[in-house]
Amino acid sequence: MKAFRFLRPRTLAEASEALRREPGAVPKAGGVDLLDRWKERVEEPEVVVGLCDVTDGAALRLEEDGALVLGALATLADLAGSDLVRRFLPALARAADQAASPQIRHRATLGGNLAQATRCGYWRLRSFPCLLRGASRCPVREPGGVQETAGIFANDPCASAHPSSVAPVLGALGAEILVGGGPEGGRGLAFEALWRAPEPGRSDVLALEPGELIRAVRIPPSAHPVRVGHAEVRQRAAFDWPLVTAAVGLTLDADRIREARVWLGSVAPTPHRARAAEAALTGRRLAEVRATFDGRAAAEGATPLPGTAYKAGLVAVAARRALADALERS
């Protein structure tokens, strides 16, 4: 790891200020992902803004209007253990509780989970060429590339996959992202606006402005009943990266689906919204989708590589199971 200057602000405002003041500075919360990247020297920041002493970033609260605001510095264990989250957002509590290992859940933060980088082994090892690190092509896509865990949507020119299993659930909840500086500033982003498509030579896929931090995630109140379900396919029962995650959020009008939000994880460079599946669900009656939804719409638009053909099938299975989970749970 290359030596860096380490700043320790006390508030989000100070942290934002530090990030603005120091061009190229990198914020670090739990450090679960970043430390590996720095040790491998895939990234070599000069200045790190540590968020460990920030005291105003971890609150989980219910606003007067019924919105839930989840501080970005809350850990996954905080989410999984919070009465508020378990009561109002049980699918999120479950997803947080199933991620990684207990040790990691106690360090990894909500903001860090959303901002985490791909697990692509090519990107993470300096000895491999990688499009995001300046190579002319993505070796995963080349003959001989190891593809099994690569993305199947939006995978040209970069076949990476965003591994967050919490993000799809937040997408299905219709979450917004609050980014920005201190109490004076900040802005709200639609969930998908937190990310942008990968660009050659640029490692991260976050659409943040310089100096901006993820401050919180807001789950807006809904005038209608909402049901959210989640399903994950992974090889090992615990402490494994998902092969595919799916989350389905349904806003209901009696027994009819008023609005559907279907999000997938580990299938594209950023969390992926499955619009065709949403269209297949919207306006339908629950009994009907229960009987007929086979999930295949969620895989529409997939462009799998030879080694990832099986993942399109997994997407359909996960979407179907996420829907079943949504219908069963709430």
Partner: peptide, 11 residues
Amino acid sequence: DRALGDMVNPT
């Protein structure tokens, strides 16, 4: 990686 010969999952 069959072309590059290095291990993709050495963690």
